[in-house]
Simulated assay, not measured.
Amino acid sequence: MAFSPVLSTVAETIQVAIAPVFLLAGLGAILNVMVGRLARIVDRSRQLEALHLRAIGPERERHIHELRLIDGRIRTINNAVYLVVMAAIAICLVVAMLFVAELANLQIGQVIAVAFIVSMLLLTGGLICFLIEIHMSVRAIRVRSDLIHPTLP
């Protein structure tokens, strides 16, 4: 006779898996913010590229400087997105392992705990990268002094 899990066992496993599933929803929201930020950065880089082609002198140098900053921001936010997606994948594996362990009667609690710890480390890394990108963007926002204090003729 084939193994058939008891309904109460499946219900208990679902209850245990609820927290990681809510975490996945939160990771989706974080990713949405990060990808939206990445889209705005890319839009700004395209604007600057168009302006750069027509610029000369000090204006051209400002565009080059800002494009270099934007390039670093894009790399940093891409790393953040990558790490958070990896965290989400690790959480999915945790949920899957919870069910496999219950259905196959495996004693893999330590493996599941390690997978959860890895997901939290990946999430932490992604959030640190996101924080670095925010810091980079704040540093990059400088109002030119000639606009604030124009010289009088």
Rank of each mutant, 00 (worst) to 15 (best):
M97Y: 03
L83E: 02
I128A: 13
T13Y: 01
L23W: 09
A115F: 13
A90N: 04
A11R: 13
S8M: 06
P58V: 03
A88E: 09
V111E: 06
A19K: 15
G57W: 02
L106M: 12
V16P: 01
T151Y: 08
Q15Y: 08
I41G: 01
L152R: 02
N79F: 05
H65W: 04
I108K: 10
V84K: 02
R73C: 02
A25P: 05
V84I: 15
F22N: 13
V143W: 01
V33N: 13
Q107D: 15
M1K: 12
G125M: 00
C92M: 10
I117R: 05
N78K: 08
I70S: 14
L69P: 00
I148Y: 07
L147N: 03
I18S: 09
F116H: 02
G109H: 04
G109D: 07
A17M: 11
R144I: 03
H135D: 04
A17P: 02
L123R: 00
L67V: 12
R75P: 00
A25K: 03
F22S: 04
A39H: 13
V138T: 02
A80V: 03
D43V: 10
F99H: 02
F116C: 03
E12I: 05
L122A: 12
I30K: 08
V10F: 10
L121V: 13
T124S: 12
D146E: 14
I112K: 02
I41Y: 00
R73Q: 12
R37I: 06
L83A: 10
H135E: 10
D43W: 01
G57K: 01
I148M: 13
I132A: 12
N105L: 15
I89Y: 12
A80M: 09
V42A: 03
A87R: 04
A140S: 15
I77E: 08
P150N: 04
